[in-house]
């Protein structure tokens, strides 16, 4: 069973649906037409590029190239986290990228080796999309975790200083903040796992079913990927905050406020 290819006419009909939001926006003066158009164009161009690029990567299926592409993904993910958490990247972009590499590569290899049992662990058709699923889905949690850590330090700086003046090492005084940001960051992922399948059928499963896989296979993959996402999320947030603890404080243990873009 093969998936139906969408013809050019089919794509035309897909875009035709956009008339509905455009008309609604026009009559209700939502002023969303230009931003909708921009987003649609950007999405189409980016996906067209990725489509061509992935075809190229999959055809070549070169181990080094696959590893390098995931490296680019990790780098962009780190940059996105810092940008969304409104942190200046010069202090921590590199250590954050390194920490993401340390957490995500072994996890991906574990996934491909023990869970899927692939012959070639760096097989492009698995390595790259799974890296994308794991990185993409842990991204939001990372933003939440890092943002929460910085906000709490700023808002409740006195609690931190109090612990320092009670003789705490920097790491001892920051453990409560670490704990809080991890809990906050992981809560949505945990809630998501509990409702999956009932509230929504996740994209990956839908994709596999459409591509002709049996629902059982699709569910196996979905369960495995959700676990991988959860594991990646907790490791990424933990290491991300540890990177902040190492790089975000001066020698006196004071938070480097110039790291924040708003300062």
């Amino acid at each position: 069973m093969e998936a139906y290819d969408i013809s050019l006419a089919g794509m035309f009909f897909a875009f035709l649906l956009l008339l509905i939001p455009i008309l609604i926006s026009y009559y209700l003066r939502l002023k969303l037409i230009s931003s909708t158009a921009e987003s649609i164009i950007r999405m189409s161009l980016q996906l067209a590029f990725v489509g061509v690029f992935l075809t190229f990567l999959f055809d070549l299926n070169n181990t080094l190239l696959n590893i390098a592409w995931v490296l680019v993904m990790v780098f962009v993910a780190s940059h996105t986290v810092l940008k969304n958490a409104e942190l200046r990247s010069k202090y921590i972009l590199l250590p954050l990228s390194v920490s993401f590499i340390i957490t995500n590569y072994p996890l991906l290899l574990y996934f491909n080796n023990f869970i899927i049992d692939l012959d070639n662990l760096f097989e492009a058709r698995y390595f790259i999309p799974i890296a994308g699923m794991v990185l993409g889905n842990s991204l939001r949690a990372n933003v939440v975790g890092i943002d929460n850590f910085c906000t709490e330090i700023l808002r409740n700086e006195n609690r931190y200083l109090f612990r320092l003046s009670m003789g705490a090492e920097k790491s001892e005084a920051l453990v409560p903040y670490l704990r809080k940001s991890l809990r906050t960051a992981l809560r949505p992922t945990i809630a998501n796992m509990a409702t999956i399948g009932i509230v929504f059928i996740p994209g990956m499963m839908t994709g596999q079913i459409l591509a002709g896989a049996s629902p059982i296979v699709a569910i196996e993959y979905q369960i495995a990927i959700m676990i991988a996402i959860y594991v990646a999320t907790i490791m990424n947030v933990l290491l991300g905050v540890i990177v902040l603890i190492w790089n975000g404080f001066d020698e006196y243990g004071m938070f480097k406020k110039d790291m924040l873009k708003s300062e």
Binding site: N156, N158, R159, L161, F162, L164, S165
Partner: peptide, 14 residues
């Protein structure tokens, strides 16, 4: 910081 005990005005410590 291990020798000096400092109690500040701000008591929002926990």
């Amino acid at each position: 910081r291990k020798r000096v005990a400092y109690v500040s005005q701000d008591t929002d410590i926990a």
